[in-house]
Amino acid sequence: MLEISIFSILALFMIGGSIAMISNRQTVFSAFGFLVAMIGLAGIFALLNSQFLAVAQIMVSVGAVVVLSMLTILTVNANGKNMPHEPNKNKWIIFTSILVAPFTILLYKALATLPDHFSTMETINSKVIGKELFSEWVLPFEILSILLLSAMVSAIVIARKSKNKERGRS
């Protein structure tokens, strides 16, 4: 019973945060909604007994991704005429929600065909994950490290100030 109430609170936090994220006009408030949703996701990982995943979620998604996006939002500092003009935003959101609702039901029905009980298993701690990661999943792990390196280099190259635009445009 306690688990169900914790789950309900976290789910409410996540859904409320994500609805605030897509419906706010100010971008910084959207980022705050996103932050709430990510913290709720970390709590749900902890509720699923995978503590290492919860800690990784807190460290990477909350600590790095959300903070980086907030820094970028504040650096770009778009206001007034630089913001997109969206007069019928709420109407569009409601209309798209009605369109997407059957897809949600389809997705849930497809996932609900899986067995509806948790297997009695130990907690998925860092020892289990480490053994699995460096025995079966070592190739995806190395590929991911190359992906992170290339993402870092490409972020620097893309965001660099182009000194001679004329040569690039021709």
Binding site: A56, V60, S119, M121, I124, I129, E136, W137, L148
Partner: peptide, 22 residues
């Protein structure tokens, strides 16, 4: 991963966090 009792799903979710970061 919790339903099937297999840690591979958690490892995939961990790798996905890296993909999300990049």
């Amino acid at each position: 991963s919790k339903v099937l009792g297999d840690a591979s799903g958690s490892v995939m979710a961990l790798l996905m966090i890296g993909v999300i970061a990049s």
